[in-house]
Design a protein around this nucleic acid. Structure first.
Lengths: 129, 129
DNA sequence: TCTGACTATTGACAAATTGCACATAGTGTG
DNA sequence: CACACTATGTGCAATTTGTCAATAGTCAGA
Protein backbone atom coordinates (compact mmCIF):
# COMPACT_ATOMS: atom_id res chain seq x y z
CA UNK A 1 0.00 0.00 0.00
CA UNK A 2 2.88 2.34 -0.60
CA UNK A 3 3.69 4.05 -3.84
CA UNK A 4 1.78 7.18 -4.68
CA UNK A 5 3.36 8.61 -1.59
CA UNK A 6 2.47 12.11 -2.61
CA UNK A 7 4.06 14.77 -0.51
CA UNK A 8 2.52 15.20 2.88
CA UNK A 9 2.19 18.90 3.25
CA UNK A 10 0.57 20.23 6.35
CA UNK A 11 -2.23 21.21 4.14
CA UNK A 12 -4.58 20.39 6.93
CA UNK A 13 -3.95 23.93 7.99
CA UNK A 14 -5.49 25.39 4.95
CA UNK A 15 -8.51 23.19 5.39
CA UNK A 16 -8.79 24.38 8.90
CA UNK A 17 -8.44 27.95 7.80
CA UNK A 18 -11.28 27.67 5.39
CA UNK A 19 -13.71 26.43 7.93
CA UNK A 20 -12.91 29.41 10.06
CA UNK A 21 -13.52 31.64 7.16
CA UNK A 22 -17.26 31.81 7.32
CA UNK A 23 -17.71 32.44 11.03
CA UNK A 24 -14.95 35.01 10.89
CA UNK A 25 -16.56 36.85 8.01
CA UNK A 26 -19.88 36.78 9.81
CA UNK A 27 -18.28 38.18 12.93
CA UNK A 28 -16.55 40.96 11.03
CA UNK A 29 -19.81 41.81 9.32
CA UNK A 30 -21.55 41.81 12.64
CA UNK A 31 -19.66 45.01 13.39
CA UNK A 32 -21.23 46.59 10.37
CA UNK A 33 -21.32 46.48 6.56
CA UNK A 34 -17.99 46.26 4.81
CA UNK A 35 -16.33 45.82 1.45
CA UNK A 36 -14.98 42.45 0.48
CA UNK A 37 -11.52 43.84 0.25
CA UNK A 38 -11.68 45.27 3.73
CA UNK A 39 -12.81 41.94 5.11
CA UNK A 40 -10.00 40.30 3.24
CA UNK A 41 -7.50 42.51 5.00
CA UNK A 42 -8.97 42.09 8.45
CA UNK A 43 -8.88 38.31 8.25
CA UNK A 44 -5.27 38.46 9.30
CA UNK A 45 -6.36 39.41 12.81
CA UNK A 46 -7.85 35.96 13.14
CA UNK A 47 -4.96 34.01 11.76
CA UNK A 48 -6.42 33.82 8.28
CA UNK A 49 -3.83 35.96 6.63
CA UNK A 50 -2.98 33.64 3.79
CA UNK A 51 -6.43 33.04 2.43
CA UNK A 52 -6.70 33.56 -1.28
CA UNK A 53 -8.91 36.49 -2.33
CA UNK A 54 -10.88 34.28 -4.67
CA UNK A 55 -11.76 32.07 -1.78
CA UNK A 56 -13.04 34.98 0.24
CA UNK A 57 -15.16 36.46 -2.53
CA UNK A 58 -16.53 33.07 -3.34
CA UNK A 59 -17.40 32.48 0.30
CA UNK A 60 -19.18 35.82 0.42
CA UNK A 61 -21.22 35.03 -2.64
CA UNK A 62 -22.16 31.67 -1.22
CA UNK A 63 -23.16 33.28 2.02
CA UNK A 64 -25.31 35.60 0.01
CA UNK A 65 -26.84 32.61 -1.71
CA UNK A 66 -27.81 31.30 1.70
CA UNK A 67 -29.28 34.61 2.68
CA UNK A 68 -26.72 35.33 5.38
CA UNK A 69 -25.65 38.58 3.78
CA UNK A 70 -26.89 40.98 1.18
CA UNK A 71 -24.73 43.06 -1.08
CA UNK A 72 -24.98 46.13 -3.22
CA UNK A 73 -22.57 48.25 -5.23
CA UNK A 74 -21.06 51.11 -3.34
CA UNK A 75 -22.37 54.33 -4.94
CA UNK A 76 -19.77 56.75 -3.69
CA UNK A 77 -16.74 55.15 -5.25
CA UNK A 78 -13.70 56.54 -3.59
CA UNK A 79 -10.72 55.38 -5.59
CA UNK A 80 -10.43 52.34 -7.77
CA UNK A 81 -13.06 50.14 -9.30
CA UNK A 82 -16.61 49.79 -7.97
CA UNK A 83 -16.77 47.99 -4.71
CA UNK A 84 -19.40 45.75 -3.33
CA UNK A 85 -20.68 46.26 0.17
CA UNK A 86 -21.81 43.32 2.23
CA UNK A 87 -24.29 43.59 5.05
CA UNK A 88 -25.32 40.95 7.53
CA UNK A 89 -28.94 39.85 7.52
CA UNK A 90 -31.02 38.58 10.42
CA UNK A 91 -30.46 35.11 9.05
CA UNK A 92 -26.76 35.78 9.04
CA UNK A 93 -27.04 36.74 12.67
CA UNK A 94 -28.54 33.39 13.47
CA UNK A 95 -25.93 31.65 11.38
CA UNK A 96 -23.24 33.36 13.39
CA UNK A 97 -24.81 32.17 16.61
CA UNK A 98 -24.96 28.63 15.28
CA UNK A 99 -21.38 28.83 14.15
CA UNK A 100 -20.23 29.87 17.59
CA UNK A 101 -22.08 26.96 19.13
CA UNK A 102 -20.38 24.70 16.66
CA UNK A 103 -17.01 26.19 17.46
CA UNK A 104 -17.59 25.71 21.16
CA UNK A 105 -18.43 22.10 20.57
CA UNK A 106 -15.36 21.73 18.43
CA UNK A 107 -13.27 23.22 21.17
CA UNK A 108 -14.62 20.67 23.60
CA UNK A 109 -13.68 17.87 21.26
CA UNK A 110 -10.19 19.26 20.95
CA UNK A 111 -9.90 19.53 24.72
CA UNK A 112 -11.11 15.99 25.11
CA UNK A 113 -8.58 14.71 22.63
CA UNK A 114 -5.69 16.72 24.01
CA UNK A 115 -6.66 15.70 27.53
CA UNK A 116 -6.62 12.05 26.61
CA UNK A 117 -3.27 12.55 24.93
CA UNK A 118 -1.67 14.19 27.94
CA UNK A 119 -3.12 11.70 30.39
CA UNK A 120 -1.84 8.87 28.31
CA UNK A 121 1.59 10.42 28.01
CA UNK A 122 1.89 10.92 31.74
CA UNK A 123 0.92 7.42 32.74
CA UNK A 124 2.75 5.74 29.89
CA UNK A 125 6.10 7.54 30.06
CA UNK A 126 7.84 5.71 27.30
CA UNK A 127 6.84 2.11 27.85
CA UNK A 128 4.01 2.08 25.39
CA UNK A 129 3.38 0.02 22.24
CA UNK B 1 -26.53 36.24 -7.11
CA UNK B 2 -29.18 33.98 -5.69
CA UNK B 3 -30.59 30.86 -7.30
CA UNK B 4 -28.88 27.53 -6.85
CA UNK B 5 -29.69 27.87 -3.20
CA UNK B 6 -28.85 24.29 -2.44
CA UNK B 7 -29.86 23.21 0.98
CA UNK B 8 -27.56 24.25 3.73
CA UNK B 9 -27.27 21.22 5.88
CA UNK B 10 -25.24 21.35 9.04
CA UNK B 11 -24.30 17.98 7.99
CA UNK B 12 -22.29 16.74 10.73
CA UNK B 13 -18.90 16.66 12.15
CA UNK B 14 -17.32 16.22 8.80
CA UNK B 15 -17.73 19.89 8.14
CA UNK B 16 -16.02 20.70 11.39
CA UNK B 17 -13.27 23.21 11.52
CA UNK B 18 -10.75 20.53 12.24
CA UNK B 19 -9.94 17.08 11.08
CA UNK B 20 -10.10 14.92 14.11
CA UNK B 21 -9.96 11.57 12.48
CA UNK B 22 -6.27 11.22 11.97
CA UNK B 23 -5.04 12.48 15.34
CA UNK B 24 -7.67 10.37 17.05
CA UNK B 25 -6.59 7.24 15.24
CA UNK B 26 -2.98 7.99 16.07
CA UNK B 27 -3.85 8.44 19.70
CA UNK B 28 -5.80 5.21 19.85
CA UNK B 29 -2.92 3.40 18.22
CA UNK B 30 -0.53 4.95 20.68
CA UNK B 31 -2.10 2.70 23.30
CA UNK B 32 -1.11 -0.30 21.24
CA UNK B 33 -1.79 -2.11 17.98
CA UNK B 34 -5.40 -2.60 17.06
CA UNK B 35 -7.73 -3.80 14.36
CA UNK B 36 -9.37 -1.31 12.09
CA UNK B 37 -12.76 -2.39 13.28
CA UNK B 38 -11.84 -1.87 16.90
CA UNK B 39 -10.58 1.61 16.13
CA UNK B 40 -13.77 2.25 14.26
CA UNK B 41 -15.78 1.42 17.35
CA UNK B 42 -13.66 3.42 19.75
CA UNK B 43 -13.96 6.58 17.66
CA UNK B 44 -17.27 7.19 19.32
CA UNK B 45 -15.47 8.07 22.54
CA UNK B 46 -14.10 11.12 20.80
CA UNK B 47 -17.29 12.28 19.21
CA UNK B 48 -16.56 10.62 15.90
CA UNK B 49 -19.33 8.08 16.12
CA UNK B 50 -20.87 8.69 12.75
CA UNK B 51 -17.79 8.32 10.61
CA UNK B 52 -18.27 5.94 7.73
CA UNK B 53 -16.16 2.76 7.92
CA UNK B 54 -14.81 3.36 4.44
CA UNK B 55 -13.48 6.68 5.55
CA UNK B 56 -11.69 5.15 8.50
CA UNK B 57 -10.10 2.35 6.53
CA UNK B 58 -9.07 4.76 3.86
CA UNK B 59 -7.51 7.03 6.44
CA UNK B 60 -5.61 4.10 7.88
CA UNK B 61 -4.27 3.09 4.49
CA UNK B 62 -3.21 6.65 3.79
CA UNK B 63 -1.50 6.84 7.13
CA UNK B 64 0.29 3.68 6.20
CA UNK B 65 1.30 5.29 2.93
CA UNK B 66 2.90 8.09 4.92
CA UNK B 67 4.70 5.65 7.15
CA UNK B 68 2.76 6.55 10.27
CA UNK B 69 1.53 3.02 10.79
CA UNK B 70 2.31 -0.48 9.56
CA UNK B 71 -0.18 -3.26 9.15
CA UNK B 72 -0.29 -7.01 8.84
CA UNK B 73 -2.96 -9.66 8.72
CA UNK B 74 -3.91 -11.09 12.04
CA UNK B 75 -2.83 -14.75 12.06
CA UNK B 76 -5.00 -16.02 14.89
CA UNK B 77 -8.34 -15.27 13.39
CA UNK B 78 -10.89 -15.43 16.13
CA UNK B 79 -14.27 -15.15 14.51
CA UNK B 80 -15.15 -13.61 11.22
CA UNK B 81 -13.02 -12.71 8.23
CA UNK B 82 -9.30 -11.96 8.38
CA UNK B 83 -8.53 -8.78 10.19
CA UNK B 84 -5.75 -6.34 9.68
CA UNK B 85 -3.73 -5.12 12.63
CA UNK B 86 -2.33 -1.62 12.64
CA UNK B 87 0.68 -0.59 14.66
CA UNK B 88 2.06 2.87 15.19
CA UNK B 89 5.56 3.58 13.92
CA UNK B 90 8.13 6.00 15.30
CA UNK B 91 7.15 8.35 12.51
CA UNK B 92 3.55 8.03 13.56
CA UNK B 93 4.59 8.99 17.04
CA UNK B 94 6.08 12.19 15.70
CA UNK B 95 3.02 12.80 13.59
CA UNK B 96 0.86 12.52 16.67
CA UNK B 97 3.00 15.09 18.45
CA UNK B 98 2.71 17.45 15.50
CA UNK B 99 -1.01 16.93 15.33
CA UNK B 100 -1.41 17.85 18.97
CA UNK B 101 0.55 21.02 18.40
CA UNK B 102 -1.69 21.78 15.50
CA UNK B 103 -4.78 21.13 17.59
CA UNK B 104 -3.52 23.43 20.31
CA UNK B 105 -3.00 26.15 17.77
CA UNK B 106 -6.44 25.56 16.39
CA UNK B 107 -7.89 25.81 19.83
CA UNK B 108 -6.24 29.17 20.27
CA UNK B 109 -7.78 30.39 17.06
CA UNK B 110 -11.18 29.23 18.19
CA UNK B 111 -10.72 30.94 21.54
CA UNK B 112 -9.68 34.12 19.83
CA UNK B 113 -12.71 34.08 17.61
CA UNK B 114 -15.14 33.21 20.36
CA UNK B 115 -13.58 35.82 22.59
CA UNK B 116 -14.04 38.49 19.96
CA UNK B 117 -17.61 37.36 19.47
CA UNK B 118 -18.48 37.57 23.16
CA UNK B 119 -16.74 40.87 23.67
CA UNK B 120 -18.59 42.33 20.74
CA UNK B 121 -21.89 40.99 21.97
CA UNK B 122 -21.43 42.46 25.40
CA UNK B 123 -20.51 45.94 24.29
CA UNK B 124 -22.94 46.03 21.42
CA UNK B 125 -26.07 44.72 23.14
CA UNK B 126 -28.43 45.01 20.25
CA UNK B 127 -27.54 48.33 18.67
CA UNK B 128 -25.28 46.94 16.02
CA UNK B 129 -25.47 47.06 12.22
C1' DT C 1 -27.23 -27.12 3.61
C1' DC C 2 -29.60 -22.97 2.90
C1' DT C 3 -30.48 -18.56 4.85
C1' DG C 4 -29.72 -14.64 7.27
C1' DA C 5 -27.09 -11.91 10.69
C1' DC C 6 -22.90 -10.16 12.13
C1' DT C 7 -17.96 -9.08 11.69
C1' DA C 8 -14.27 -6.81 8.70
C1' DT C 9 -12.21 -4.78 4.84
C1' DT C 10 -12.05 -2.78 0.30
C1' DG C 11 -13.21 -0.52 -4.34
C1' DA C 12 -15.36 2.58 -7.34
C1' DC C 13 -17.54 6.64 -8.45
C1' DA C 14 -20.15 10.90 -7.70
C1' DA C 15 -20.26 15.16 -5.29
C1' DA C 16 -18.18 18.79 -2.91
C1' DT C 17 -14.14 21.71 -1.88
C1' DT C 18 -9.90 24.14 -2.80
C1' DG C 19 -6.07 26.30 -5.09
C1' DC C 20 -4.54 28.71 -8.77
C1' DA C 21 -4.13 31.26 -12.76
C1' DC C 22 -6.09 34.58 -15.14
C1' DA C 23 -9.84 38.13 -16.65
C1' DT C 24 -11.92 42.50 -15.94
C1' DA C 25 -12.07 47.24 -14.51
C1' DG C 26 -11.38 51.84 -12.53
C1' DT C 27 -7.98 55.31 -10.84
C1' DG C 28 -3.74 57.72 -10.33
C1' DT C 29 1.28 58.65 -11.87
C1' DG C 30 4.98 59.82 -14.97
C1' DC D 1 0.42 55.35 -23.31
C1' DA D 2 2.54 52.14 -19.96
C1' DC D 3 2.34 50.80 -15.45
C1' DA D 4 1.12 50.06 -10.71
C1' DC D 5 -2.42 49.57 -7.41
C1' DT D 6 -7.04 48.60 -5.80
C1' DA D 7 -11.14 45.34 -6.18
C1' DT D 8 -13.90 41.80 -7.81
C1' DG D 9 -15.02 37.74 -10.42
C1' DT D 10 -14.53 33.25 -13.54
C1' DG D 11 -13.06 28.82 -14.92
C1' DC D 12 -10.98 24.63 -14.29
C1' DA D 13 -7.88 21.09 -12.59
C1' DA D 14 -6.70 18.72 -8.51
C1' DT D 15 -7.88 17.01 -4.20
C1' DT D 16 -10.91 15.38 -0.66
C1' DT D 17 -15.17 13.39 1.02
C1' DG D 18 -19.42 10.79 1.07
C1' DT D 19 -21.96 6.95 -0.35
C1' DC D 20 -23.01 2.46 -2.11
C1' DA D 21 -22.05 -1.72 -2.95
C1' DA D 22 -18.80 -5.86 -3.26
C1' DT D 23 -16.24 -9.41 -1.04
C1' DA D 24 -15.48 -12.72 2.60
C1' DG D 25 -15.42 -15.44 6.76
C1' DT D 26 -18.05 -17.31 10.88
C1' DC D 27 -21.99 -18.70 13.41
C1' DA D 28 -26.95 -19.86 14.59
C1' DG D 29 -31.08 -21.90 13.45
C1' DA D 30 -34.77 -24.10 10.38
Amino acid sequence: MQGRRRRWRWQGCSRRAVRFLEPTLLLLLHHGPAHGYTLLERLGEFGLGRVNPSVVYRALREMEGRGWVTSYWDEEQAQGPPRRVYRLTALGDEALALWTQDLEQTRQLIDHLLGAYRRHMEEGEGEHH
